[in-house]
Nucleic acid binder design. Sequence first.
DNA 1: ATTGAAATCGAACGCTC
DNA 2: GAGCGTTCGATTTCAAT
Lengths: 154, 154
Amino acid sequence: MELDDVDWKLLEILQTDGRITFTELARRVSLSAPATTERVRRLEQAGVLTGYVAVVDHRRLGLPIEAIVRVRVRSLDTPRFRERVVPLAQVRDADHVTGDDCWLLRVVCRSTQELEEFVEHAQRFGDTTTSLVFSSPVRTRPVTRETSDGIVFR
Amino acid sequence: MELDDVDWKLLEILQTDGRITFTELARRVSLSAPATTERVRRLEQAGVLTGYVAVVDHRRLGLPIEAIVRVRVRSLDTPRFRERVVPLAQVRDADHVTGDDCWLLRVVCRSTQELEEFVEHAQRFGDTTTSLVFSSPVRTRPVTRETSDGIVFR
DNA sequence: ATTGAAATCGAACGCTC
DNA sequence: GAGCGTTCGATTTCAAT
């Protein structure tokens, strides 16, 4: 799919304010509402826009601990790891990646005790390395046209 | 803030469908529309709901490469790292964490060449370890009440 | 429960490639 | 002709009071 400036602008706005009305969206890109609606519909259709989600602050939900758990899963154990660890409720992101630490899990927990429990569980499938998250200066930065423009600041 | 079952249900729905109308939301939790709107407003007010965003598929935006770059930033270089690397357009997530690899960056790129460029840039501030993302079986799983219920499958 | 705003749809028309 | 956008009116749905 070929995207023009207006499409990129729509994506940028929607990645920032996912609940904006089509009327306001149309105003922001200087198009009519029907044209705007149609473009968004096409972006959804093309699989560029895959959904809309509310963002929550886990710390205000009784889950003050956030950690990245890297797991060096033994290859034979991978299917069981997918079944027994990836689906755990604490796991917010699970990435299968290249390299020695072949899985990266972002988990949130009620307490360090619960994190310990989680890590012990994960360790049944391979060695783990756990890092507590101090802060996340960037969380889900919007993808924009400049993202593929080389080394560019935002 | 004290959350009841309905609040949790609202959060769960909104984390799945961020553009649902209040009318439909009300129907799904068996409340009146005004009561539902008021609850959502309170969750926003309390900082539990922090925003709404569209989710995009970077691969359909000319950015097929996704990687996790761990950077062992020398502590004296941290301010410059924050200024010169964290703001780069390719960075979608940046987490400051405990441990030797004190920064974790999720980056998207047009090509491995661009990734190489990025990593070389980051390396000015410390040693790096880069992992390509094969797949992400879980991306931003909703936080639910059971998230803090111990080892529970979802 | 009322009221204004927003979304949705169809039809007709113009512009450009 | 195909694709895209605009305007208008009519209707329905939604949000706010």
